[in-house]
């Protein structure tokens, strides 16, 4: 190894560290859920998905469709109708980022007791640009994680 190549090692190491950091931040994912002790989500038959006021992409409809696919009778809208009973109230919060196109970077879903808004369960999915999925897939992923549907 000559003197020039020895001095290139720090430069190569720097490039490697930077490349690793870029890759790590570019394809980071996370998927978690929490269910309150004693909660039986298998008993859920009906659900109402409350639209996030700032959401104009229709994520509430995607969640309702996913619940229906799971066999739960689901409706969605701005607020739960006072004259109807539902087993659960579903709220969510989505975050979007731009990287060539807009994509959903994270989706957090909460399953609430309709009368008290107690958080019975919650789920979270996070995907950066290189690991991005469609909003439909993000919804399927997080709802499956909450309801333990593998």
């Amino acid at each position: 190894m000559n003197r020039n190549s020895a001095h290139r090692i720090p430069l190569i190491a720097t490039c490697l560290v930077l490349a690793c950091l870029l890759l790590m931040s570019g394809c980071a994912t996370d998927l978690t859920s929490t269910v309150a002790p004693g909660t039986d989500l298998e008993a859920v038959k009906t659900a109402f998905v409350e639209r996030l006021p700032a959401d104009d992409r229709g994520v509430e409809k995607l969640i309702a469709e996913e619940l229906a696919r799971m066999g739960i009778q689901a409706a969605s809208g701005d607020a739960m109708p006072a004259d109807q009973d539902y087993d659960i109230l579903v709220t969510y919060r989505d975050k979007w980022m731009w990287d060539i196109t807009m994509y959903m970077i994270e989706l957090r879903v909460q399953i609430l007791k309709p009368d008290t808004r107690f958080v019975m369960a919650s789920g979270y999915t996070f995907r950066t640009s290189l690991a991005r999925k469609s909003p439909e897939e993000m919804v399927t992923e997080v709802m499956g994680e909450i309801f333990n549907e593998k």
Partner: peptide
Amino acid sequence: KSKRQLQVSVAVLALLG
């Protein structure tokens, strides 16, 4: 040139830190 490369690398790593 190598000395300068070394200085740049150290500076980049320090900035990163």
